[in-house]
């Protein structure tokens, strides 16, 4: 078996987030601003709900269905952006995007840096970026 290659993708920290996601289904449906993103190629679905007050993320949650990478990435993202200002959230989103496209990590991304290994599995990059794309869409709407 050559499953050890998978360790680059499914690191312990990623699997911990995937199994016990943070901010998962924690807000009621009518709270805050919500956006639903769907990946038509694989069926991954995320509903991201944000409460923004005075230019800051006050509360947030995600709901949806997808693989371990998707769940871990969404969970890490919600941890990162909670209580951040919109400017900080935008900067983090750019940093995450730079990491996934160019491989530049940034300490500000914290545990989300563990997702850099996904770059070795090009067909799975969308799993890691879907939640961030949902976030970008919400910020544009805001």
């Amino acid at each position: 078996m050559t499953l050890h290659n998978l360790d680059q993708l499914y690191r312990q920290v990623i699997m911990t987030y995937a199994k016990h996601p943070h901010h998962f289904q924690s807000l009621s449906a009518d709270t805050g601003q919500a956006v639903t993103k769907y990946n038509p190629t694989c069926g991954d679905l995320i509903k991201l709900t944000l409460v923004i007050e005075n230019g800051r993320v006050q509360d947030l949650s995600f709901d949806g269905d997808g693989c371990a990478i998707f769940k871990a990435s969404a969970s890490m993202m919600t941890d990162l952006i909670n209580h951040k200002s919109i400017e900080e959230v935008q900067r983090l989103s750019q940093q995450f995007s730079a990491m996934m496209t160019d491989g530049q990590t940034s300490a500000a991304l914290g545990d989300a840096c563990s997702l850099i290994g996904v770059r070795k599995f090009p067909t799975r990059i969308k799993c890691a970026t879907l939640s961030w794309h949902a976030l970008d869409e919400l910020l544009i709407q805001n």
Partner: peptide, 20 residues
Amino acid sequence: HPHDVATALDQEGIEVRAGH
């Protein structure tokens, strides 16, 4: 999740479909 199964099988050279 089926995507995780399919990625793992791919590491074994086994090509399957996952999704809808």
